[in-house]
């Protein structure tokens, strides 16, 4: 086990609309080691982005952070202290978003966008040009070509690289990448992820890769959490999860991933993400689970260690590891 860098404990988030409160993230735990690439996978609306945004103090207005603690680099803060958590940004934590073109300010040249992050870090002015050029090179761009251009003048892939340069300008130990390649074509996607992983090795940076594409995550990550309807159902070493998926949802997901080397019949997952009331504590996969039993009504059990990872499912309660 490497040194623990980033940790979320017991994070719960509610949303209230029209007087109805829904729990959209329930009792979430997550731990990332220094330099590790960690995958957070789930369907759209499963709470993966919301939980990670809340963990860095960027919970959308209107969301209610009910409980939880976030630890980063030895500092622990309650998750409800959003302002305090934002202090981690530019001090070791950076983010990447899905829509890079929209994420860059439309009013500044790409070079200027990187520069203002450096300014924020109090890099003296004379030192900045060299560092900007260096950051552009790091993400595979040529400053002379793109530094004077505005975001609307460059491609989506280039925009995501500029966003990467911005994120890297604060020299982070952790990068949270929220589906950074979803808006890009497949070739650009591979290229970008190869870059990310290389930078990750060069700079000993950890990445939390949020994705809905399990096969993509499997290529780059060493750790994995599977989220379903606001609950983490299975977590741990990626190899172990892929070798012996335990939770019925994980099994379903992996069965639905095509494999070029060993073609198998793809089995679609039945049903859709939990949309019901949240005052019911039961496992939120139970309504689409083939192994559902009475015990599921009592809620998700605490993590059960089995094989090389952990699962939250009553099926494995009382069994020996």
């Amino acid at each position: 086990m490497g040194e623990k860098l980033f940790e979320i404990q017991n994070l719960s988030i509610d949303t209230r609309r029209g007087g109805v409160t829904r729990r959209i993230v329930e009792n979430m735990n997550l731990a990332v080691e220094r330099g590790q690439i960690y995958g957070l996978v789930g369907e759209s609306g499963s709470g993966k982005s919301i939980s990670m945004m809340a963990s860095v103090g960027l919970a959308a207005p209107g969301l209610l952070v009910r409980s939880g603690e976030v630890g980063f680099g030895g500092r622990r803060l309650p998750a409800s202290d959003q302002k305090g958590l934002r202090g981690n940004l530019s001090h070791g934590v950076s983010l990447l978003f899905q829509n890079a073109k929209g994420a860059l300010s439309p009013f500044l040249t790409t070079g200027r966008q990187v520069e203002r992050v450096l300014a924020q870090r109090k890099v003296p002015k004379p030192a900045r040009p060299k560092e900007i050029t260096e950051l552009f090179r790091l993400v595979g761009l040529n400053f002379a070509d793109l530094g004077e251009k505005y975001p609307h003048q460059i491609s989506g892939g280039q925009a995501q690289r500029v966003a990467m340069a911005c994120a890297m300008a604060s020299n982070p130990a952790l990068l949270i990448a929220d589906e950074p390649t979803t808006a890009l074509d497949v070739t650009t996607e591979r290229e970008l992820l190869r870059f990310l992983t290389r930078i990750c090795r060069e700079r000993d940076m950890a990445i939390v890769l949020i994705a809905h594409n399990l096969s993509l995550v499997s290529e780059y990550c060493s750790g994995l959490s599977i989220m379903h309807a606001g609950q983490v159902v299975e977590e741990g070493a990626l190899r172990s999860i892929f070798a012996t998926p335990l939770h019925p949802y994980t099994k379903g997901l992996i069965a639905a991933v095509p494999d070029v080397d060993e073609p198998h019949e793809l089995v679609p997952l039945e049903g859709s993400v939990w949309g019901g009331r949240n005052d019911i504590v039961r496992c939120r996969f139970s309504h689409r689970c083939p192994h559902v039993r009475a015990r599921c009504e009592a809620g998700l059990p605490p993590a059960i260690a089995r094989g090389g990872h952990q699962v939250h499912c009553v099926l494995y309660e009382g069994e020996a590891a």
Partner: peptide, 26 residues
């Protein structure tokens, strides 16, 4: 609510820079 405002915040830019610089200009 624009993505560039969220990203600006995520980069740790000062709130004044994000609100008066980017959002206000938008």
């Amino acid at each position: 609510g624009e993505d560039y405002v969220t990203f600006g915040r995520a980069l740790g830019l000062r709130p004044r820079q994000v609100v008066l610089g980017d959002a206000f200009r938008g």
